[in-house]
C-alpha cells in the first residue's frame, strides 16, 4: 500500500518534544533533532528486516551518509525505517521491472540482469556482507570500527567482493540509492526526519510556488521547507 496523507504519524509523534540539544542544533537544524528524540522515545519496529539486518542498515547507512558539520546523518534522518517501509511496497517486489527470464549476464552498460528484486537483494546482500565481515575481521559489520566498515563499503563499491549470488557492487549501489532516497524523500515515507535532509540542501520541499523567486540575482531562498503533510521547519 502507498502511504497516504491520512497517516501523518510522524507529525503527531514529533509534536511537543522540544528542548533536546545536540551539536547540530548549533547550525539551526532543530527540527530533526526533535524527531531524533521522538525516535529514541518510541523506536520504530521493523516489519521486513530482522533485528540483526536492521542493525546492519543503521550502521552501514550512517557510514554512507554520516552526521557531520553539514547536518544529520542517516540514523538521525530515519533512513533504516524508510528502508524497512519501502520493503513493503511494490517497488521492493520489483513490480515495475521486467523480470522475465532468461537471465543472462552481459556488459554492465546494458543494465541490471539479475533475477532478484530489491527485497532479495537486501536479504542476500546483508547476509553476504555479514559473512564477509566475519571472514575478514572476525566480527559482524556493526561491531567493527568506522574505519573497517568504510573499508568494506569501499571494497563493495569497487567491485572486488562477491556476496554469494550478488556482486558486491550491485548491493552497494542498491543500498546507496535507497539511503539517499531515505535522506531526501518527503517524510511521509519515514526518512528525512524533521525535514533535516532538505534543510541541509536549502530545498523548500513541497512549496512548489516560486512566482516571485524566479530571479533574485543569486540570493538564497528565504523560506524553510514544508512537507506534503504540512510539517515545516
Amino acid at each position: 500500500m502507498e502511504p497516504t496523507l491520512n497517516n501523518p504519524f510522524r507529525r503527531s509523534v514529533v509534536k511537543g518534544l522540544l528542548g533536546t540539544t545536540s551539536f547540530w542544533m548549533a547550525s539551526g537544524n532543530a527540527r530533526w533533532a526533535e524527531a531524533l528524540a521522538a525516535e529514541a522515545a518510541q523506536p520504530y519496529q521493523p516489519a521486513f528486516f530482522n533485528a540483526a539486518e536492521y542493525q546492519f542498515l543503521e550502521s552501514a547507512c550512517e557510514r554512507l551518509f554520516p552526521a557531520d558539520h553539514n547536518g544529520p546523518g542517516a540514523k538521525a534522518l530515519g533512513v533504516a525505517e524508510f528502508l524497512d517501509r519501502q520493503m513493503q511496497t511494490p517497488y521492493a517486489r520489483g513490480e515495475n521491472w521486467y523480470m522475465s527470464g532468461p537471465f543472462e549476464q552481459g556488459p554492465a552498460n546494458l543494465g541490471y540482469q539479475l533475477p532478484f528484486v530489491p527485497k532479495d537483494l537486501y536479504r542476500k546482500g546483508i547476509a553476504g556482507v555479514e559473512h564477509y565481515a566475519r571472514q575478514q575481521y572476525g566480527k559482524g559489520f556493526s561491531a567493527l570500527s568506522a574505519l573497517q566498515q568504510d573499508e568494506i563499503l569501499t571494497a563493495l563499491e569497487g567491485g572486488s567482493v562477491q556476496l554469494g549470488d550478488i556482486p558486491g557492487r550491485v548491493f552497494f549501489e542498491q543500498l546507496r540509492t535507497n539511503t539517499l532516497e531515505g535522506a531526501f524523500a518527503d517524510p511521509l515515507y519515514g526518512g528525512n526526519r524533521g525535514l533535516g535532509g532538505w534543510i541541509m540542501l536549502g530545498f523548500p520541499g513541497a512549496r512548489a510556488d516560486f512566482m516571485d523567486w524566479v530571479n533574485q540575482e543569486g540570493a538564497s531562498y528565504p523560506i524553510g521547507p514544508v512537507s506534503i503533510s504540512g510539517e515545516t521547519a
Binding site: 521486467y98 523480470m99 543472462e104
Partner: peptide
C-alpha cells in the same frame, strides 16, 4: 532488449533509466 553492436546478445531493458 538493447545491445550496442550486432555481434552482441541484446539484453532486456529491465529497469527504466
Amino acid at each position: 532488449t538493447i545491445r550496442n553492436t550486432m555481434d552482441q546478445t541484446a539484453l532486456p531493458y529491465r529497469q527504466l533509466a
